[in-house]
Amino acid sequence: MDIINAIVLLLNYIFVPALSYGSQLALGAIFVSLIYGILRFAYFTAGDLMSFGTMFTILFTWYFQSLGISLGVLPTALIAIPFGIIITIFYVLVKDKLVFSYYRFKKSPPVMLAMVSIGTMFVTQAIVRIVIGPFDRRFFDGEKFILKANEFKEITGLNEGLTIKSTQVITLLVTIIVVSILFWFLNKTKTGKSMRAYSDNEDLALLSGIDPKKVVMITWVIAAILATIGGTLYGLDKSFKPFTYFNNMLPIFAAAIVGGIGNPFGAFLGGYVIAFSEILLTYAYRKFFVYILPESLEPNSLIQLLSTDYKFAVSFSILVIVLLFRPSGIFKGKVL
């Protein structure tokens, strides 16, 4: 019984939260990786693009709520996402046309484009703050829990409860669907294959008649879709605050690099690597050991490897270690 209690404890505090946080990071990391693979620069606007998409999703959610439209037990935001996506796609395409295409045409070095993306980061941040303000906002509605700790205890008779929030399940399901479609697209369709080919060998892709404009455009569209969905899921699960989204850029980059930047599948896994290590290394294992060890060996300290203050620092340290020992990433980088 104690063992089961211990397992439930880990499930509740580590596995479930890490899985949903990892999915949110993964969606971001995939598009950062995709942009790096195809457009060949580090896209520093990543976090703010997510907050841009989420902001419009929230605005549409409010609009639908004011009309009395709702999904019942599901959050209204789910029907608002497509509208948020459309506006975000429009925004990235305009941005590409006005800003990035010039440098691409001039064949500027990647560093230049990364700097330009800092310019667009400032602008995007300003737009978000001017439109919706810098405050913390919650826009979740519907049924909050799928499984409550008390119910779980009652059903199983265990000491430890297991809480599953509906946002966690939604996050996981949506991520699975979106990522499956994306990898199907990249691996099975002609356009998807041409994107991989372009990322692999630009010159040869051009010689083969692949249209760079189309490839770039589709990349931005995918980025906008993933950014909006990932951002909205994060906001539903936690809350929406522009500054947090900007900061999320850092673990997202860490995930993308750990997974081998330019490789979306690696980035997808990288998201979970970062999420799990953040939570595993900062969790206090005391209770866990109380369950599995005999009383005489019970620990009296928290058994916490690092204080939760260092949550971010963990992912960055992993990144630094990966950069040092395997710069191509754990899952072999480059090539979509």
Partner: peptide, 13 residues
């Protein structure tokens, strides 16, 4: 207060 971000961004670009 947030227009400064806009000015910085546009200025940089």
């Amino acid at each position: 207060p947030y227009f400064r971000f806009l000015m910085m961004g546009v200025g940089l670009l």
